[in-house]
Structures are given as C-alpha cells and as structure tokens.
Amino acid sequence: MPMDWIWGLIGGLLIGTGGAIYLLGNGRIMGASGIIGGLIDGSGRSTAGERLIFLAGVVLLPVLLMPFYGVVDTHITDNWPVLAIAGMLVGTGTRLANGCTSGHGVCGMSRLSVRGFVATGCYILAGGIGVLVFRHLLGVI
C-alpha cells in the first residue's frame, strides 16, 4: 500500500508537469473534459489538431509503459447499464460544470480558483455519497 502512494505522487508530478507544459507552452488549461468535449460539440474546432494530438499522447504513453508492468487490471465493472449511465453522467456533468478532475481539480485549485474548489467539493461529495448508496446500501456496484 505505501508503494501505491509513492507511485501516486510520482504519477501526480508527471500529470502536473503535463499541465505546466500545456499552460506555459500553449497558454491553455489542461482539462480532459474540455479537450475532449470541444471536439465532440464542435466548440473547439479551431484547435482540433492540438486537442487530437494531446489525446494521442494520453493514449500512447500507457501503451509504451505497459511492457514494464505486464498485465494491468483496471477492475472496471462488467455491468453494462451501470457503465452506460455513469458514462452519460460523467460526459454531461463535466461539460455542464466546464471541467473535471484535471481542469477544476488540479489546474483550478492550484490557482486558487473558487469555481475549482466548489466543483471539486461537489464531485467528491457526490461520488462519496454515490459509493455509499450504490455499494453499501443498494449493493449495485
């Protein structure tokens, strides 16, 4: 378990470095939902190339690192209705709020953005209550 925290910290530093490069290099806030969502709803058409190549890097690096790890189990549920409902909630919710864990959480809170703190408080609280209700009370997940 303690090793997990250390890898979490190292991974976090890498995530933050990615965000720092995006900010100082391209003047943009590294938010996953915004980068993806702008491609989906057309609002980011003028920066589509930058968005696509960013996402290519996100997909590519785990592929390159995978050989050092062997088999990686993501422990994702095989309950398809739950996956579909959760995906819809994540997609709609992050775009309504204009940010997710990376944009509001990491990038927003590190510049002391009030919206970042409020959003992060809301999604962690809702996620915590969600796990409590759906895992411990209803036994769905």
């Binding site: 996953a32 997609g91 204009n98 409020v118 999604y123 962690i124 609280l125 969600g130």
Partner: peptide, 29 residues
C-alpha cells in the same frame, strides 16, 4: 451549471471509478 454538473459528474465517477482523463488513457487496455 457548476454545482449540478459537478454533482452529476461525481455520481457517475463514483458508479464506475472513471473520470474523462483516465477513461481515454485506458482506451487500449
């Protein structure tokens, strides 16, 4: 929008344990 959106996102996040970044990062596996 900020509050409702974040609450909806949080429920989905808790249900499966994925937010948008990791969902894309794990596309190949």
């Amino acid at each position: 929008k900020l509050i409702l959106g974040s609450v909806l996102f949080g429920i989905g996040w808790g249900l499966v344990g994925l937010c948008p970044g990791p969902a894309i990062a794990s596309l190949t596996y």
